[in-house]
């Protein structure tokens, strides 16, 4: 098998990987071929071994079932590999307890298997009981803060709307007042009317953005609140 054929087959076989992972893997194997030299492509492909094995290993590493089974349990793949890992099982077990543990060591649920290859699929949506208790106990501390920040948010939006209100109401009344007084005091009437129209203009130009900004403040606030809540209460 030549380089291109190997890469193409691998790409096809790894199609379920996220793009970043796929690119990284293909780049790696491409580089191996180039470094091994063009004249050695057949030999290199042979040494690289079975594409199927590569693909399966990468899928397992990425928590994807190599056979496309939706109800995928990583334990299934621990069988034959675990036997292999047994030999140094104790060694790895000790590592699992070490403080230097990488992410894959944190869940010590493969004590006997001790096969660091095997990453447990990420468990999402699990509640942290400790955090909930802490939050309930700390209620007097964070609740006033929450209320204050919500009040501040309301004040901010009300102020923004009031400014807009001043512009539109002041603008309309100045324009009408100016128009009425043009016959009696023409200069003053014109000035008032002009000023009024300018204010209406400012209102028309800014009202859209102010409304948008207020919406964003609210959405942003509640978005940040939910994110924060998720971070505190959910185990990732």
């Amino acid at each position: 098998m030549k380089r291109q054929e190997f890469i193409d087959t691998l790409r096809e076989r790894l199609s379920k990987l996220p793009k970043e992972e796929l690119d990284s893997a293909l780049d790696y194997y491409n580089e191996i071929f180039l470094d091994a030299g063009e004249e050695n492509e057949e030999k290199t492909a042979e040494e690289l071994g079975s594409i199927d094995v590569i693909a399966r290993q990468l899928y397992v590493e990425n928590g994807i079932d190599p056979d496309g089974d939706p109800a995928y349990f990583i334990e299934k793949y621990n069988g034959p590999k675990a036997q292999q890992g047994q030999q140094f099982g104790q060694t790895q077990q000790n590592f699992n307890n070490g403080p230097q543990a990488g992410p894959y060591m944190q869940n010590g649920s493969f004590p006997q298997q001790g096969y660091p290859y095997m990453q447990q699929p990420a468990q999402k949506g699990k509640l942290k009981v400790g955090s909930i208790i802490a939050m309930v106990l700390l209620f007097p501390l964070w609740f006033p803060l929450l209320i204050v920040s919500m009040v501040l948010m309301f004040v901010l939006t009300i102020v923004l709307f009031s400014i807009e209100l001043v512009f539109i109401a002041g603008g309309i009344s100045c324009a009408i007042g100016g128009l009425i007084s043009i016959p009696s005091i023409p200069p003053a009437g014109l000035v008032f009317m002009g000023g009024g129209l300018v204010m209406i203009g400012i209102f028309l130009l800014t009202v859209k953005y102010v409304a948008k900004a207020c919406g964003r403040i609210f959405l942003g606030f509640f978005g940040a609140l939910t994110d924060f809540g998720q971070k505190i209460f959910m185990e990732v």
């Binding site: 992972e21 990284s24 893997a25 790696y28 194997y29 191996i32 040494e47 690289l48 071994g49 079975s50 094995v53 590569i54 290993q57 990468l58 590493e61 990488g102 894959y104 660091p116 290859y117 990453q119």
Partner: peptide, 12 residues
């Protein structure tokens, strides 16, 4: 073989 090496390095 390299086949087992790449996933190892990627994980590390």
């Amino acid at each position: 073989s390299e086949s087992t090496l790449y996933p190892v390095m990627r994980r590390l």
